[in-house]
Computed example of a mutant assay.
Amino acid sequence: MDLTINQLKKKSLEALKGKWGIAVLLTFLIFLITTFVPMIAEVYASGGFETWANQTETPLIADVINIFFSFLFIPLTTASYWFYLVVARWNDPKISQVFAVYKNWELSLKVIGTAILMGIFTMLWMLLLIIPGLIKGISYSQAFFLLKDNPEYSALEAITESKKRMKGYKWKFFLMNLSFIGWVFIAIFTLGVGFLWLSPYIATTNANFYNEFIFPQGNEEKKSIDLAI
Rank of each mutant, 00 (worst) to 15 (best):
T51I: 11
F49P: 00
A143D: 00
W20T: 11
W82T: 07
L25T: 09
F36A: 04
V111C: 06
V111K: 12
F36I: 01
I30N: 04
M126C: 06
L25N: 03
A143T: 02
W20P: 00
S108N: 05
F99V: 08
K10N: 08
V101Q: 08
V37W: 08
L32Y: 03
L26Q: 03
W82F: 10
L147Y: 10
F36M: 02
T34F: 09
I112S: 12
E106I: 03
F99L: 09
F71I: 14
Y44I: 11
E42M: 15
W90T: 11
L25P: 00
Y102W: 08
V64Y: 14
F68P: 00
M123Y: 10
T77E: 15
A45D: 06
W90A: 14
G18D: 04
I95L: 09
T35P: 01
F83Y: 07
N91W: 08
I116L: 13
F83W: 02
L109R: 13
G48E: 15
T51P: 00
S12P: 00
M126E: 05
K103M: 03
V101G: 11
V64R: 14
L146K: 06
L60T: 14
I30S: 06
K10F: 05
L128V: 11
L29A: 10
S154W: 10
L25S: 07
K9C: 09
D63L: 11
L60K: 15
D92H: 14
L32E: 00
T56N: 04
F121L: 09
D63M: 10
F31N: 01
I112E: 02
T35A: 07
A15V: 01
E152D: 05
P59L: 15
Y84W: 09
K136H: 05
F121Q: 03
A88D: 03
V98D: 02
E57T: 14
F144C: 04
T122K: 15
T122S: 11
G119L: 07
S96G: 09
I135K: 15
W105G: 13
W90C: 07
T58V: 10
A45R: 10
T51V: 13
L127N: 03
E57N: 13
G47S: 13
